[in-house]
Simulated assay, not measured.
Amino acid sequence: MPDNEKVKILCVDDEKNVLHALERFFLDDDYEILTAGSGDEGLRMLVEEQPVQVVISDYRMPVMNGVDFLKEVYLRWPETIRIVLSGYADAGVIVAAINEGHIYKFIPKPWNEDELRFTVSNSLERYHLQRHNRELVAALAHYNEMLEKMVQERTADLELRNGALAIAQSMLHSLPFPVIGIDTAGMMVQGNQKAVELFREVESALLGTDCRDVLPQDVCRLLPDLAGDDVACLSWIRHGTHYDVHITPFGRYGQRGTVIMLIEKDRHTVE
């Protein structure tokens, strides 16, 4: 528990001499001892003195017995450690106290000082561990909430990017001339529908084909030397069609390569 949090122990008993004895017993301990002569008074004091780490209650009290009192304490302050201190050692009472009052320990009167001191020390350790666990659970819930939000944002971003990619692919395939993407190793990694039609003989494996297997040597020789804003334009005749070959390097978003556009110029027969 925090260094500045005072340890408070509430002792509830209708016999004043018992309360005085408990105050004397804890006199040398660094605890603040609160006392109440009834269950109702104990509940009022708990409202005023929170947080109270440990409650020690007698069982046989008028109006509200110890089990009913501790049951109410459990419902309203479940983190408080509850101890029954009673000379009425009937087994049924002990079972009721444990099940209904959710008590941590049943100590008979007259109490053994070592047992009582050990029980209170363990109770405070239990209180500390329970609160630490709650803090960890709360921190984990907060972290999971942040993570879920990040996942949702990332998912939305990916969906947006995928949508933009689909549109870009659709635009690429709608262009009326062949467009080819080539990576730095000279492999064809992109090609629109017109490119597939132009290189019909390698249609099933256009992507992944070495550009030197389908493009003229003059074009392939230029690719390694182009960089930055360099743009090259060559002429190429294929299947009787004259193309202007526009070669443009790119290097954005960590990707590098070359875009080749084949613009049909005119048609003539080559013997």
Rank of each mutant, 00 (worst) to 15 (best):
I167H: 14
S170G: 15
D210S: 14
S38M: 04
R82M: 03
G208I: 02
M61P: 07
L147Q: 07
V179C: 06
R44V: 06
D225L: 15
V63L: 08
V63W: 04
H132T: 10
Y59C: 05
M61H: 07
S174E: 09
G191T: 00
Q50F: 05
A21W: 05
L43W: 03
E5H: 06
S170T: 13
L34D: 00
L75Q: 15
K109F: 02
E15M: 10
L75F: 04
R60L: 12
V12S: 00
V55E: 04
R161H: 10
L75I: 06
D90A: 15
E41P: 04
R117W: 01
L22I: 09
F106L: 11
A141M: 07
R76M: 04
D157S: 13
A91F: 09
N17A: 09
D114T: 15
I180G: 02
L160Y: 11
A185L: 09
N99P: 09
E264R: 15
T269E: 13
V52D: 02
L129G: 00
I247L: 11
D213I: 08
T119M: 04
K149C: 04
R60A: 11
G208R: 06
V202M: 04
S174D: 10
Y253D: 15
E271P: 15
D225P: 06
C220K: 01
E115G: 11
Y243D: 03
L207G: 00
R24E: 07
V55N: 06
P178W: 00
Q130F: 03
R212E: 12
G251S: 15
E15A: 11
G42S: 08
V12F: 00
V151W: 06
D40Y: 13
M187E: 09
V137Y: 05
D13V: 03
M146H: 10
F26D: 04
Y143G: 04
E264T: 11
E100H: 08
S123E: 01
Q53W: 04
Q169V: 08
L207Y: 00
L165N: 12
N17E: 08
H173K: 09
N162K: 14
S235P: 12
P108H: 12
N122F: 01
N112W: 11
I180M: 08
E197V: 02
D266V: 08
D183L: 02
M188T: 13
D28Y: 08
D28F: 09
Y104L: 10
N144V: 00
R126D: 06
T209K: 06
Y127M: 01
N144T: 05
S57G: 12
K8D: 00
P110N: 09
T209M: 07
E48F: 10
G92A: 13
L165S: 07
E48A: 15
R82H: 05
K6F: 01
V55P: 11
R200F: 05
E32F: 00
D210R: 12
V202A: 03
H132K: 14
F106I: 11
D29N: 12
A185P: 01
Q193L: 07
L206H: 03
I103N: 10
R154P: 04
L198M: 10
D29S: 11
V231F: 10
H128C: 08
G101T: 00
E145Q: 14
S235C: 11
Q152M: 10
S121M: 07
I167K: 15
I81F: 03
L85G: 08
V12Y: 00
Q130W: 03
G163F: 02
